[in-house]
């Protein structure tokens, strides 16, 4: 059911819906790697308004290089950031 697996390269979709969403703008448009498939969860964008959260969304931990997120990152290039993102926010690269 899940479209991606560990190690896949993905890009986070860009979008700022006027409603509730849980994909911070600082990762939008950025390229990362699937670290873990966390499971399948009701969609919070539906739950927030009393909806049933269906269709449920696969949830992944995505790992980014800090230098991908911030052009002027001060630390070593090996530093990373992980964040949990629902599948409908992921795009193929």
């Amino acid at each position: 059911m899940a479209k991606y697996q560990r190690g896949d390269r993905v890009r986070i979709r860009v979008g700022v819906p006027p409603t509730h969403f849980r994909t911070p703008e600082y990762v939008q448009g950025k390229r990362g790697r699937v670290e873990t498939l966390c499971g399948v969860f009701p969609n919070p964008e539906s739950l927030a308004y009393g909806g049933d959260g269906l269709p449920a969304q696969p949830l992944y931990t995505i790992e980014f290089s800090q230098t991908e997120l911030w052009a002027n990152y001060k630390g070593p290039t090996t530093d990373t950031l992980l964040i949990d993102i629902y599948e409908h926010w992921l795009e193929n690269i």
Binding site: R22, C38, T61, E63, P76, D79, T80, L82, D84
Partner: peptide, 15 residues
């Protein structure tokens, strides 16, 4: 140490 990898985890969802 700079040789230690720093990993920030942003808990944004169900975990």
């Amino acid at each position: 140490d700079a040789a230690v990898q720093v990993r920030v985890i942003d808990s944004s969802a169900d975990f």
